[in-house]
């Protein structure tokens, strides 16, 4: 049911009945390494191209979620999938052997929240009994599309973020079992004129602020009602800016705020500069670690606000700024 201004309350409280994550080598060596269902030391996953490796990673996350929830493919009524690549090739490649109705999404790094929101709305409105939300990213496939060849010797700036090689899948059903999805807020395009493609955090912070504050206002909740406000991958720069933006309203979110881009890697030991990014970053943190904690009850009320910098190399070279977006999904144990 629409509350207002993009916030939708899900009255039937759909559940995330199964979830799984799959990550590459660097992510498995990070602080959350033990949380993930699947890790690999070989980021090619035996495929001939990085795009196919990413598809495979997405497939692994999806199939693991199916088996963890004892689902068969026939049980899934619709699949919302997305990634960073042009035409969402990793998602369609990953889904091509299934016969599941497929919706491809692009929301840059916000795609996990976008797909989870849509899957929950489908289940809540009885358009589906079980809906899957799958997203992935791969460092090498993203690097060659958006930046430079992998072996090119470039220096990254301190504000640059590292695209995660990771995938996550959540299956939303109309069962009664935590984590529940209480409400979602659909993001708006926020463009604050950031043109630096090496500073995605800055491009996304305004969108995160907009969506989170809208969600709080529309659902009449306070920051203190949450155990965790989890942004997608703002990294260090974007997280600092988000806190600063809230501080201007007299709201301190630092006690409950965390960021997937800061959680996935050990920034002291791993050379990721401002933190992780990519659709797979928030997907793997959510599906590898946060959903489990909500299911077990250690986290009671979580606002997951994945953020995306909708960066196109073409538009960026034309001198245009990078629009940001953030979608929010409120998950709770009760």
């Amino acid at each position: 049911m629409l509350i207002k201004d993009g916030t939708i309350a899900l009255d039937s409280l759909p559940s995330v009945t199964a979830y799984a994550s799959a990550v590459g080598k660097m992510e498995s060596e990070g602080p959350l390494g033990k949380c993930f269902d699947f890790t690999t030391q070989d980021n090619t996953l035996g495929e001939v191209s990085w795009e196919k490796s990413e598809s495979k990673l997405q497939q692994i996350a999806f199939n693991t979620a199916l088996s963890k929830g004892r689902f068969s493919q026939k049980d899934i009524d619709v699949m919302f999938a997305g990634d960073l690549l042009n035409q969402c090739v990793s998602s369609s490649g990953g889904a091509k052997d299934t016969e599941i109705p497929f919706v491809g999404l692009f929301g840059a790094c916000s795609t996990m929240a976008e797909s989870l929101a849509l899957a929950s709305i489908f289940v809540d409105s009885k358009a589906a009994n079980n809906a899957a939300a799958v997203t992935s990213s791969h460092f090498c496939s993203a690097e060659r599309q958006f930046r430079f060849p992998v072996n090119y010797g470039g220096q990254r700036t301190p504000t640059a973020q590292w695209t995660a090689t990771a995938a996550g899948c959540a299956i939303v059903s109309s069962h009664c079992k935590p984590p529940y999805i209480r409400s979602v807020t659909i993001g708006k395009i926020n463009d604050m004129g950031v043109t630096d493609a090496n500073n995605m955090g800055a491009a996304m912070a305004a969108a995160a602020y907009d969506t989170i504050s809208r969600h709080l206002a529309n659902t009449a909740q306070q920051v203190s009602d949450f155990d965790l406000i989890l942004t997608g991958d703002l990294g260090q720069v974007g997280s600092d800016m988000l806190k600063e933006l809230f501080k201007r309203d007299g709201v301190d979110i630092s006690a409950v705020h965390n960021d997937c881009g800061l959680m996935l890697y050990d920034r002291e030991k791993q050379d990721v500069h401002a933190g992780g990014s990519g659709c797979g970053c928030s997907a793997s943190v959510l599906c590898g670690c946060i959903l489990k904690q909500i299911e077990q009850g250690t986290l009671k009320n979580v606002l997951f606000a994945a953020t995306g910098a909708l960066m196109s190399p073409t538009i960026n070279q034309q001198g245009e700024s990078i629009p940001g977006i953030s979608h929010a999904v409120q998950l709770s144990a009760q």
């Binding site: 004129g193 907009d210 600092d240």
Partner: peptide, 25 residues
């Protein structure tokens, strides 16, 4: 949030760490 892009740019600059010249140079 009522904020001009110029204000936001100042915020961005404040939050963004500079390259450590004493290392890179």
């Amino acid at each position: 949030m009522k904020m001009t892009t110029a204000e936001y740019d100042r915020l961005t600059k404040k939050a963004s760490p500079n390259t450590k010249l004493y290392l890179t140079l």
